[in-house]
Design a binder for these strands. Structure first.
Length: 281
DNA sequence: CGTAGACCCTGCGCGC
DNA sequence: TGCGCGCAGGGTCTAC
């Protein structure tokens, strides 16, 4: 099962690194490839050398490594997106360079913070912390599922007169962030909503159930990830993404956990959707 | 503007 | 056993 770095993986990674990185200083930056889905700005990344890590934040699936402010003003932030196959891990000093290791930050602890990403759909850049809100990568992101403003009314309002199926709407990162293909399928199953239903057919109560389900599914994955993979970040460098229990995703033909009817698959927007044809209406 | 589809990329699983 | 093919998916861009 391809456990992609969706929002729960990034959040678990953030919590793990939060225990390990603050206070550490970057001694050297190694830009080892031209870039990922965008070319690296090697000069900007290299300017992190000598900087001390202040803390870690997350927005959508973006991880922020904040650095301490200098005497001359605001600090810098390293922004990392793992794309489809990225890993951002702490490796011991003696760990050899990994295949597809694009970026490496040598820490004053001797460890190496490195970004490994075979498919290169990831992203990394450094920018002044104060400019992040206006950064084009981040400016048009939708609401966080954990935000208090994320509820059925929000969905209903944003749905407006839109066309198209609810699953595509749910995966629109300009509406709500962090719901990739896997958790979109899982959330709709939990809410008992058919993925092909046009958004116009959903009423207030269904939207509320869907918002609750999104939050519950993500929260559960974060909780499972936190308990099942404590060495997600600081393992031997080969620690994979954590596995969570999934009801429908990648389970075509297997019985629905709720009603035992075989799970079906359909393709929406070129992506596989897994659902229960009996439970989900 | 909203929606649909193409595209980026490599690893893996499958069939022959 | 080995090889080639198709699929997987997040985000962004283009076309309509």
């Amino acid at each position: 099962m391809p456990a992609m770095p969706e929002l729960p993986e990034v959040e678990v990674l953030r919590r793990s690194l939060e225990r390990l990185l603050p206070g550490r200083r970057i001694e050297q930056v190694d830009v080892r490839s031209p870039g990922l889905r965008e070319p690296f700005d090697a000069a900007a990344l290299s300017s992190l050398a000598g900087q001390r890590i202040a803390g870690l934040r997350r927005r959508a699936k973006y991880l922020f490594v904040d650095f301490e402010a200098g005497q001359e003003g605001g600090g810098l932030t390293l922004v990392v997106h793992l794309g489809m196959s990225g890993r951002f891990t702490l490796a011991p000093a003696e760990e050899p360079t990994a295949k597809h290791e694009h970026l490496a930050f040598l820490l004053d602890s001797g460890q190496r913070l490195r970004l490994v990403d075979p498919r290169r759909f990831g992203l990394a850049f450094a920018a002044p912390t104060a400019t992040l809100d206006a950064d084009p990568h981040l400016a048009s992101l939708g609401i966080e599922p954990a935000d208090a403003g994320f509820h059925g009314g929000f969905f209903q309002q944003r749905a407006g007169r839109r066309k198209g199926p609810v699953k595509t709407f749910l995966m629109n990162g300009q509406i709500v962030v962090g719901v990739g293909n896997i958790y979109a399928c899982e959330s709709l199953w939990r809410a008992r909503i058919h993925p092909a239903r046009p958004v116009a057919t959903l009423k207030k109560r269904a939207w509320q159930t869907l918002a609750d389900s999104v939050r519950a599914v993500l929260d559960q994955a974060i909780a499972e990830g936190g308990t099942t993979l404590n060495d997600f970040a600081d393992g031997e460098g080969n620690a994979g993404y954590f596995q969570v229990s999934l009801a429908v995703y990648d389970r075509e033909g297997e019985p629905c956990p709720r009603c035992a009817k075989p799970i079906e698959r359909l393709v929406q927007a070129n992506r596989s959707t897994f659902f229960c044809p009996r439970c989900q209406r």
